[in-house]
């Protein structure tokens, strides 16, 4: 992951089509276009896993079904705890066979329709009430030792003491890089994170939508709907504020913004 930061490789989030898509073929084509564009740019495509609990296709099956090329340094798969054990292994086996090495392991957002890994599935029966990213990390490391480079999420808007304690457990469980929730300015908790873990690669998330108010839930306070926000200017300032960090771009507009990011990270 340090290689990504040194070589200014953006992490670009791509959402797979939803299961209930009414225009699936068109959505698949669009996904392939975005993925290939990220590959050609030399960036890293980060494919979400049922983001916000919405039923979507898995990144691994998109890659397989669409015959997309995997460049190991340029693909990251999000993986959460809302799977059956069989599906989890299918995903991990596909990642292994395709040479995908980066995983972002998160607890994730569930929904009525999504199954959930049980403690007994991952050898944590009697130890925990429910499977979180910590148990998932441990399980993956035990079943696929040394196969994957796994990252975890860090939320600077949660109570810091609790969040740092959680992060320590994630790192102890096998995580080797960190991706933060979106930041739009200097953040003292992220500063603390960088001080505390100077040797662990940290990737800060930049919010690329103009609709800043959508971040209200993540940051824990109400951002007015009419708030003016310039994502590109914010991205520039994040590079200045955190030159030692990688950057993850969420909700990047492929038509309107992609061409603008090329020369920003200098």
């Amino acid at each position: 992951m340090l290689h990504h930061i040194k070589n200014k490789v953006y992490h670009i989030e791509i959402l797979p089509p939803k299961q209930d898509s009414q225009k699936l073929e068109a959505d698949l084509e669009l996904f392939a276009q975005k993925y290939n564009r990220v590959m050609e740019s030399g960036y890293c495509a980060c494919i979400t896993d049922n983001a916000m609990g919405h039923l979507s296709f898995q990144g691994t099956e998109m890659i397989e079904e669409l015959g997309l090329e995997v460049r190991p340094e340029q693909v990251m798969i999000h993986l959460n705890t809302f799977h059956t054990l069989e599906d989890l292994h299918n995903i991990l086996d596909t990642c292994k066979s395709k040479g995908i090495k980066y995983l972002l392991v998160v607890s994730g957002d569930g929904s009525e329709r999504l199954p959930k890994l049980q403690p007994s599935d991952v050898g944590a029966e009697g130890k925990v009430e429910s499977v979180t990213s910590v148990e998932l990390l441990k399980y993956i490391e035990s079943k696929y030792p040394g196969t994957f480079t796994m990252g975890v999420a860090f939320n600077p808007y949660e109570p810091p003491e609790h969040e740092f304690e959680k992060l320590k457990r994630k790192l102890d469980a096998g995580a080797s890089f960190i991706i933060t929730q979106p930041i739009i300015e200097k953040n003292k908790i992220v500063d603390e994170l960088l001080e505390k873990y100077p040797d662990i690669p940290v990737i800060v998330e930049a919010w690329m939508s103009r609709k800043l108010h959508l971040l209200s839930e993540a940051v824990g306070y109400e951002i007015p709907e009419n708030t003016q926000y310039d994502p590109i200017e914010t991205l520039k300032s994040i590079h200045k504020l955190y030159p030692q960090c990688g950057v993850y771009l969420a909700l990047l507009g492929f038509k309107t913004q992609y061409h603008l990011i090329k020369d920003i990270w200098v």
Binding site: F57, E61, M62, L114
Partner: peptide, 15 residues
Amino acid sequence: NTPRIPSLKRRLAAR
């Protein structure tokens, strides 16, 4: 039971 989530392959075949 816990219903499975359709795979992309099956979804495409079903269409």
